[in-house]
Simulated assay, not measured.
Amino acid sequence: MGKTADLTDVQKALIDMLHKEGKPQKAIAKEAGCSQSAVSKHINGKKSGREKCGRKRCTSNRDNRSLENIVKKRPFKNLGEIHKEWTAAGVSASRATTHRRIQDMGYNCRVPCVKPHMTKRQKRLIWAKEKKNRTVAQWSKRAEQTLLQKRVVELSQQIETLHQEKENMEKTLQAEIKQLREQVASLVQSNVKMFEELQVYQNPDHGQQRLLTLMETLQSQHKELLQAQLASLRQEILSQAGVMPPNSHTGALELCANQDHPQAQEEE
């Protein structure tokens, strides 16, 4: 058995017809195929069922009238501005509620239509309509201008390529010059060293000086060795004798050492 909200238009018409005939509600419910309560509610005109379920509306009729006045005064406002003005008046409602109330009043938002872009064919047609009254002289002048523009563009491209080639050549030449300078500097240094060595070998005075310095160093080393040997001999003699020798013996040892020394120099 359906409820009042589930009754179709045919069932409602049948219930109205049978009710006018004076039939009881039970017989009407059987013939209409619904419950007696649905028949009674429909006859009495009471609204029930799904339309009444849910929470109450957050806005009253007075609030809806104030919203309608706002929309009528400024119809070109957007939804955000209308909602802000309505809530500033003391109404507590969301943006979605504002949108629903405006739609219930019969107002709808409108967005300006964006014109589509022109196609190439349309552009060519407009251009042809604009230039259809031109003379032959004007067209020839225009053709000459286009040819000159093309020539200028070609020349500018050639100039750019030449500039690029010039820059590349300059870079390569600078790199080669740098390498040559480094090679010349290395050659100059090697030549200077060779010249200094040749001067050393060719100068006889310098060679003699080196020989003299070597002889002097050898003589000093030989003297030091002889003095060390004499000192060791003295210590051995003193250790064997156990008595300090007289001055004559030390003098004799020094004389012997001085006599042996020139012989060693002559042998060297």
Score class of each variant (00 low, 15 high):
Leu187His: 00
Lys150Asp: 14
Arg101Leu: 05
Gln149Arg: 15
Thr4Met: 13
Glu170Gly: 03
Thr172His: 06
Gly242Phe: 01
Cys34Ile: 02
Ala96Ile: 08
Val39Arg: 05
Thr98Phe: 00
Pro75Met: 00
Ala128Asp: 08
Pro245Val: 11
Gln199Cys: 09
Ala185Thr: 08
Met169Cys: 09
Lys223Cys: 02
Lys129Pro: 00
Gly45Arg: 01
Glu267His: 03
Gln219Glu: 14
Cys113Gly: 06
Asn191Gly: 12
Glu154Ile: 08
Pro204Asn: 06
Val184Asp: 06
Leu18Glu: 03
Leu147Phe: 06
Ala137Tyr: 08
Lys171Glu: 07
Lys115Ser: 12
Val243Met: 06
Arg50Met: 13
Gly251Met: 01
Leu173Trp: 02
Lys26Met: 03
Asn247Thr: 05
Lys30Trp: 02
Thr119Lys: 09
Asp9Ile: 07
Arg121Met: 04
Glu21Cys: 00
Glu224Met: 14
Gly22Met: 10
Leu180Ile: 12
Val71Phe: 00
Ser66Glu: 15
Ser37Gly: 08
Gln265Ser: 04
Ile237His: 05
Asn44Met: 14
Glu167Gly: 01
Gln221Thr: 12
Gly22Asn: 13
Gln263Gly: 10
Gln202Met: 05
Lys84Thr: 13
Gln259Tyr: 01
Cys113Gln: 07
Val243Thr: 10
Ala93Arg: 03
Ser40Trp: 07
Leu180Pro: 03
Lys41Pro: 00
Arg181Lys: 15
Gln179Cys: 01
Ser48Asp: 15
Gly106Arg: 10
Lys120Trp: 01
Ser156Thr: 13
Val153Met: 14
Glu216Phe: 02
Leu180Gln: 12
Thr250Tyr: 10
Gly207Cys: 10
Glu144Tyr: 02
Ala32Ile: 10
Pro246Cys: 01
Glu85Met: 08
Gln164Ile: 08
Leu155His: 03
Ile159Trp: 07
Glu266Met: 09
Gly2Asp: 10
Val39Gly: 07
Lys223Asn: 06
Arg74Gln: 05
Ser186Lys: 07
Leu125Asn: 04
Gly90Pro: 07
Val192Tyr: 02
Asn247Met: 08
Gly80Cys: 09
Ala143Leu: 15
Thr172Cys: 07
Lys178Ala: 13
Gln25Thr: 09
Ser190Ile: 15
Val200Trp: 01
Arg181Trp: 09
Arg134Ala: 05
Lys150Leu: 15
Leu67Phe: 04
Gln265Pro: 03
Arg142Leu: 09
Ala88Asn: 06
Gln103Thr: 12
Thr4Arg: 13
Ala137Gln: 13
Lys84Cys: 11
Ser66Gln: 15
Gly106Met: 02
Lys193Cys: 04
Lys178Thr: 11
Arg100Pro: 05
Ile82Pro: 01
Gly33His: 05
Glu160Val: 08
Gly207Pro: 00
Gly22His: 08
Glu224Ile: 12
Gln25Lys: 02
Gln229Ser: 03
Gln179Leu: 14
Leu230Gly: 05
Ala257Cys: 09
Lys120Tyr: 03
Gln11Asn: 10
Leu7Thr: 03
Ile70His: 02
Gly106Tyr: 00
Glu267Met: 07
Asp104Asn: 13
Lys73Gln: 13
Gln183Pro: 00
Phe76Arg: 12
Leu67Asn: 12
Leu218Lys: 11
Gln227Asp: 10
Glu31Asn: 02
Leu187Ser: 09
Leu7Ala: 03
Lys77Met: 09
